[in-house]
Amino acid sequence: MTSAAPATAAVPLGSPAGAAPGWSAVRTTGLTRRFGTHVAVDGVALEVPRGAVYGFLGPNGSGKTTTIRMLLGLIAADDGEIELLGRPMPERLADVLPRVGALIEGPAFHPHLSGASNLRRLDVSDATADPATSRARIGQALTRVGLTAAAGKRYRSYSLGMKQRLGLAAALLQPRDLLVLDEPTNGLDPQGTREVRHLIRDLAADGTTVLVSSHLLAEVEQVATHVGIMSAGRLLRQGPLTEVLADGVAVLRVTTPDLDAAGDVLGRLGLASVRTDAEQSCVQARLGNVLTEDVAAELHTAGVRLRGLTVERPDLETLFVSLTGEGFDVVE
C-alpha cells in the first residue's frame, strides 16, 4: 500500500530497538491532568518509537483515554510536554494532526447520514485532503475495513461492529504516520478482531506507528512490539514487549530423580526461592539474572540426570495483573 502514499508518508522507520535518536512518534514528559482533586494522569512519560506498535494498557479509569485526548489536543494538560511526530502539541496541532489518524473512545458519527457521507464530511473538513481523490480514498478506506457493502446505509442502522469499522475507516482516510486507536476491537466479533489485528500489522509494515489502547491483553500481545502499562494515572512499565515481559519473574523448573543434587546446584548459582517437590520429582526456583544455559551446564557437570528443564515466563496478563491488581473495581 505504500504506492498510495506519495509525499506525505516519507517518514523513515525509526530504529526498532526503541532508543529513537532525535524524535519519536509520541513523546511526553511529566504529563499531568487533574479533574478537581482527582489526578487522572500523573507525570506520564510516554515514549512511542517510530515504527512501533505500542500497546497502551491499563484498567478502566487508569487514565489511558485522558492521555490520548491530551495527545490529540482535545483536552489541555495541567503540566508536562507533548511531542507528536517530533513537533510540540498542541502548538503545532494544525501541522501534526493531518498525519495522525485517530479512533477516540469509540466511533461517533451523524446518525442520519450514511457511512460514506460521514466519511465525506470528515474528508472535506481536512484542509490538506485533496478533493480530487476524496471519493477514491473514501472507497479505499471502506474497502480496507470491509464496509463497502454498507457504505450507503445510514449510520443509525449500523451494528456496533460496523460502527467500529467506520471509525477505523475514518482514521485511514489519508496515509498516516501515526494511528492512535483507542479500543479498536470494541464490539467486534472474533472474526472482526482478527481482521483488525491484520490491519494493524499491515499498517505497521507500511511504516505507520500505531498506538493502540486495549484491555484485551492477549490481543495486544499478538501485535504489539512495545507496551506501556497504566494504573491509577501513572505509567508503571514501558518498553519493548520482550523487555517488559522479562521484567516479570521467570520460574525455572528442573525435573529430575536427583532432587538434592539439583537443589544444591541451584542454590550455589544463587537462584532464589529454591523449592523441592518430591511428589512431582522436580525442583523450582526463581531464575533471576542467571542464564538458563549456565544452569543447564552446571547441572550436567554435577551429574544431575535431567528429565526436563523449563523456564516459565509470565505472559502479559499475569504481569498486568501483578502490576495493576486483581478485581473489577474501577480505580479511582
Binding site: 489536543g73 482535545l74 496541532l93 494532526l97 493531518p98 495522525v100 461517533a108 473538513s125 481536512d126
Partner: peptide, 10 residues
C-alpha cells in the same frame, strides 16, 4: 461525539 473527530481531523 463528532466534535472530537472534527477537532482531530484537524
Amino acid at each position: 461525539g463528532t466534535l472530537r473527530y472534527l477537532l482531530a481531523v484537524p
